[in-house]
Design a protein around this nucleic acid. Structure first.
Lengths: 242, 242
DNA sequence: TAGTGGTCTAGACCACAGA
DNA sequence: CTGTGGTCTAGACCACTAC
């Protein structure tokens, strides 16, 4: 079904996650893996490249490939660097209450991000989102209705992303995110039950379809104590010389 | 000097940044680029892979590769997903005031992250960092002195990262980061001049050397109004089927 | 010296978007 | 139908590490 390197990637990842391959351990060399999986070296490298980008393994030039230890965290919900959907894909029990649902003229900032003109209409959705029954995110969403038509109140109450992919058959491919800390405002106090000394973790996002069209601009204000953003950065080889 | 794909990557990137290749424009096909740069297709794909991961281009299967428009931001200092150094590499005028500089026994949490034993000594540095003369970060740094020896007060006042790479000749290769919003505490009020309703953007980081050794654990509390964390997420092809 | 990952070549076949 | 990126093969040489 999937490609060969994807199968190998999944296999190795699961071996790491289940502890068959232990942190610090050296895994087989690329040539040995070729034999084991009966494929060419490039296929193995494709798989190892993904594992390395995701922080599962670490490659030491001229020495070998090693399992990296995964330190994981606290009581917060983890928003991964690779997560594209607002929420519904990562967390389990997500429900939403729609606070506002209206069509406006697009403002300048949103128009810029969504590549729209000043006089274009935009769908604005303001939702309170619950995880396991607890109100934890206040989310402002701006959708381009020419790209994503037919979003109803019912869709907004559930998952817009699922509607886009499953009903419209479009593919969400990438997202740009900017994360900041913000003092809480009146709505945060009211809906997220925050004190005025307690902040939100704000994630501003522009999401793109698989043809490069930006379709959504959103501001998601997360309860500071319930979310964290994790990422793994890998420096490229020659980058330091520049 | 650098590898061929790196040269091609740099060349294409600069063409995008200088506007020779414009947002939305389709660039040459991979086979055409092979001829232009006189190399094999894999070398071209290596270059395009990086551009794609970094959000410069967007590949549409069976159609072509397109330049993506880069939206950039506000008045804040951008902490990029790919930035490894705390600061000194990205911003220009960074100075530091050392608040504490001492050797302690490592605590359990730090020991876990740095792969150390309970009775091991750890170097603890507490610094206030200024950008353009403004106090904007309070940073707690824990260093493993067995891995990074010879850090002096003088080093701490300047750049620990530069000392590691330039003086010790070690290579910083990767980092795991966890970003959260936190209410400001007394030190934040005192040193960063925050009000009690104003938060910090906290980045917790474990940094690794090029051989996979964790050498530093740090907590950096950033003035909420001066920093943002940006990232670009790209979904992998088959990921959706899982 | 032997083994490793990094780089590169020169091909190949596929499924499907777009004309 | 043609061109495209996605995947894959079966090699190759290199510089360096660890022994």
């Amino acid at each position: 079904m999937a490609s060969k390197y994807m199968e190998i990637y999944k296999d190795l990842k699961s071996q790491i996650e289940t502890g068959v391959l232990k942190p610090g351990e050296k895994i087989k060399s690329e040539v040995d893996l070729c034999k084991e999986y009966d494929c060419s070296r490039m296929t193995i490298r494709n798989a190892l490249d993904i594992l390395s980008e995701e922080g599962y393994v670490f490659r030491k030039k001229k020495v070998g490939t090693f399992v990296l230890n995964h330190v994981h965290s606290h009581n917060r919900t983890i928003i991964s660097e690779r997560e594209l959907s607002g929420l519904t894909r990562s967390a389990k029990n997500v429900t939403s209450k729609v606070i506002k649902f209206e069509v406006n003229f697009v403002d300048q900032n949103v128009a810029l991000h969504l590549n729209m003109k000043k006089s274009d209409p935009v769908l604005y959705i303001y939702r309170l989102r619950y995880v396991n029954g607890e109100p934890v995110i206040l989310e402002h969403t701006y959708l381009n209705p020419r790209v994503i038509p037919g979003v109803t109140l019912d869709v907004a109450e559930h998952s817009v992303y699922r509607y886009i992919e499953e009903t419209l058959g479009l593919r969400i491919a990438s997202a740009k995110k900017v994360t900041t800390a913000q003092p809480s405002n009146e709505d945060d106090h009211k809906y997220l039950h925050l004190k005025d000394t307690e902040p939100v973790l704000m994630i501003e996002q522009v999401a793109y379809l698989d043809d490069g069209t930006p379709f959504e601009y959103s501001l998601a204000r997360h309860h500071y104590d319930k979310f964290e953003m994790t990422m793994y950065s890998l420096r490229r080889k020659e980058m330091s010389h520049k």
